[in-house]
Design a protein around this nucleic acid. Structure first.
Length: 634
DNA sequence: CTCTAGGAATCGTGCCCATT
DNA sequence: AATGGGCACGATTCCTAGAG
């Protein structure tokens, strides 16, 4: 029978573009494949290999069009688990994690797979600079319009949890939110949040009513309670509101408005309770979102003779510096250097930079020269974990930060990586800036920072490579400076880099408010792996290790290797049985005398070891005897 | 779960009738 | 002749039961 729909790049699209049709396709693939496996003579290991390398890729491809709900994903997983347990001669009640844990059997789970794929796809597409990024931004905007929500759908997850319509992006976010993963983490004053008021409608009315009121809220353009109150702190009438929105006031008055009227109105003159009264200042602040800096007076008194434009440039530069660093002693130094250099004419200057690293201490240094005169120099100690080439890059950025706008600068560096591999490819050719390709370039935020600065300050940059320790005066100076910064013990020259979200990626992965810097998919894999390990530790047999976690040092790696020896060795029927035996033994579900006695005390009267009749905790495993008998009957 | 028909609620408008 | 209250009806919007 020919399946419906069209196939494009390995993904089948149904005629109806909904989740259900794709889910059915996935379900069919799994059913069909498991059914094929069931009737073949396969060992446990062969089943898992087939599942991981054939079925999972098929499912993964098809999963790009849908979000499989958790019930269905569990159902699909249980099919393969059932088969594996059957083929591996394991009991039905064997814990599931032992099948999915990578250290044990390593059977991929659809529940986990979906989340890993989602996190990667979402971050790639949301952070794109190109067409896909634009489309995603439009999607986000239209979702916010649809559910009538002012906040960031990635940051405040609880607001989107009860939206009814199935939207791919929303379903994905909901799924990730179950595991405490988020793509944004910020407060209510952020670009992602729609401004215009400070109390949301949905905070005032019953949660159940809100979703049904969305349509009428949209038609009158009301999102905040602020919008319902006029200058005299009176609640506007329904007729007023509809007139302002430019539609007719005929028809029923919506329930949400009646509810709000009941809650907010003090008297018949429509005055609102004092708690809801508008404070003009607060309203203005939310509307304009201006952050006042209180250092203009200071600047003006210090540089009374400078003109306004220059002051503006200084202010601008200081703000940009703040975007890159945390509050630390180095910023003041950097600002001082910028002011000092500002008095010098900057034309065709040479910038020599160097970074060095020793025993977890990072240092950078730079020298600015005009012909043969040193007109500026500086060095900083950088806190954090950075590789050497990153330090070279940071040195260039810090050196550039003290140079005036539109200056012509020759940059001399001794780092091959920075110059050829990254500078030429990323900035000059501009061709590798797609998210997919540079996601794996470590510390990509530093590159975006440099690109941001170049665009902002319009320097005319030319890069040159110099050999280190070759007698070049400027380079040797920079080298010395960076090394002396390493040794510095005072905090004066300390710099802590913390990039603002405007410079770094717009969307990042957060787990419980913790920023996950790179490789989101790998992190999710690790997260799942740890979950399985936690289940292992929660077993009864691990009680001792759990309680004495700090005291005992268990060699888990070798233990697991011994348990799974039969599984990892070769691939025969006999091996299959050994494996089952080992696993059962490890999980303590072999039918030993104690267990049998517990299950059926009438039949097995004693829980003692049948060989020595000594004690229950002896270690003579009854399963051994069963194994012998089993082979005999074969 | 989604969509739609139809009831409920409300305003606008025109008509009738009484008053100024 | 002008004005205003009461009523009926249509237009419009909100909202829910029930079909598929």
């Amino acid at each position: 029978m020919k399946p419906e729909g069209v196939r494009f790049l390995g993904v089948r699209f149904a005629n109806k573009a909904n989740f259900q049709s794709h889910n059915i396709m996935i379900e069919n693939v799994v059913k069909q494949m498991v059914n094929i496996m069931r009737w073949k003579k396969l060992t446990l290991k062969e089943c898992i290999t087939f599942w991981n390398s054939v079925v999972i890729p098929m499912v993964e491809y098809q999963m790009q069009c849908t979000v499989v709900n958790e019930t269905l994903a569990e159902k699909l997983d249980s099919k393969i688990r059932n088969l594996i347990k059957h083929k591996g001669e394991l009991a039905v009640h064997t814990s599931n994690w032992i099948l999915h844990d990578k250290d044990f059997m390593g059977c991929k789970s659809i529940v986990d797979l979906q989340k890993e794929v989602l996190i990667k796809n979402l971050l790639y597409s949301l952070n794109q600079d190109g067409l896909l990024g634009k489309i995603m931004r439009i999607k986000v905007a239209s979702i916010k319009q649809h559910i009538w929500f002012n906040g960031c759908i990635f940051s405040e997850v609880k607001h989107i949890l009860n939206s009814e319509k199935q939207i791919w992006l929303l379903e994905g976010i909901k799924l990730l939110a179950n595991d405490n993963f988020k793509l944004c983490d910020h407060g209510r004053t952020h670009d992602h949040v729609t401004s215009g008021g400070h109390t949301l409608i949905d905070e005032m009315i019953d949660k159940k009513n809100f979703s049904s009121s969305v349509q009428s809220l949209k038609s009158v353009n009301i999102m905040y309670v602020t919008q319902l109150i006029d200058e005299n702190n009176r609640l506007k009438t329904w007729r007023q509101i509809t007139r302002e929105a430019g539609r007719s006031s005929k028809g029923r008055i919506p329930l949400w408005f009646n509810e709000i009227e009941k809650k907010m109105m003090k008297n018949d003159q429509r005055e609102v309770y004092s708690g809801y009264e508008l404070i003009r200042e607060v309203y203005d602040r939310y509307n304009n979102d201006i952050v006042y800096e209180n250092y203009w007076n200071k600047l003006e008194s210090e540089f009374a003779e400078r003109d306004l434009e220059e002051l503006l440039e200084i202010d601008n530069r200081f703000n940009v510096m703040k975007m890159g660093f945390e509050e630390c002693g180095g910023i003041l130094e950097l600002q001082k250097m910028f002011l000092k250099l500002g008095e010098v004419k900057q034309e065709n200057i040479n910038l020599y930079t160097d970074g060095s690293k020793k025993n977890r201490n990072n240092g950078i240094g730079w020298v600015i020269m005009y012909i043969d005169n040193i007109i500026g120099k500086g060095n900083f100690k950088i806190e954090g974990k950075y590789e050497v080439w990153k330090l070279e890059l940071i040195a260039i950025i810090m050196g550039l930060l003290v140079i005036k706008k539109r200056a012509k600068v020759n940059v001399y560096t001794d780092s091959q990586v920075v110059l050829v591999d990254l500078w030429h490819k990323l900035i000059i050719d501009n061709r590798m800036w797609s998210t997919r390709r540079i996601w794996n370039v470590k510390s990509v935020g530093l590159w975006r920072w440099l690109k941001f600065l170049i665009k902002k300050f319009e320097w005319d940059l030319v890069f040159y490579k110099v050999k280190s320790h070759s007698g070049n005066l400027g380079n040797d100076w920079a080298d010395n400076l960076s090394k002396s910064a390493l040794m510095a013990k005072e905090d004066k020259n300390l710099i802590i880099i913390k990039l603002n979200q405007k410079i770094d990626w717009e969307y990042n992965l957060y787990w419980k408010k913790e920023l996950i810097k790179d490789a989101p998919r790998e992190f999710y894999k690790l997260y799942n792996q740890w979950r399985y390990k936690a289940e292992l530790l929660s077993l009864d047999m691990c009680k001792y290790y759990r309680l004495n976690n700090s005291m005992e040092k268990v060699d888990w790696h070798r233990s697991i290797k011994i348990i799974m020896k039969a599984f990892n060795d070769e691939n025969t029927d006999k091996n299959n049985f050994d494996n089952a035996y080992n696993v059962k033994n490890f999980l303590e579900i072999l039918p030993v005398a104690t267990l049998l006695n517990k299950r059926n005390p009438e039949l097995y009267e004693s829980g003692r070891c049948i060989r020595c009749n000594y004690t229950t905790e002896h270690g003579h495993i009854f399963g051994y005897v069963i194994k012998q008998r089993h082979q005999y009957f074969k």
